[in-house]
Amino acid sequence: MRGVLSLCVLRVVADGPTYGYAIAARLAEAGLGPVKGGTLYPILARLETEGLVSSSWEAGDGGPGRKFFTLTDAGEQFLRERTELWHVFTERAAGLLAPLPAARSTP
């Protein structure tokens, strides 16, 4: 599941430079449940280490600054490829996971 979550994070960043808390809020809004900081930031760190996103600190209004993440060219290519793969996989899985026939009566 972590791989999918990381793909979702990348997709949120693809909508334009954004920061940790806003990404978490966007994921929650999309129905992916609350994603804790302890899960989200290591994902972002990994994406940055792999060169899929870049980051820069921007001064916050009054509060501490925010770290903004931007999709890199490599990140965009990765996102396109993996999104394609994900759709192929979910379609196949959905085909296999057809609804069960009406409940069997237990002997």
């Binding site: 940790g20 900081g37 760190a45 501490p64």
Partner: peptide, 20 residues
């Protein structure tokens, strides 16, 4: 990493142990 935690906690009002 420390700045990320501070920034996140300031924004959500969470306790760092609770969030991280």
């Amino acid at each position: 990493v420390l700045a990320e935690v501070q920034s996140h906690v300031a924004e959500t009002g969470e306790d760092p142990r609770q969030a991280f």
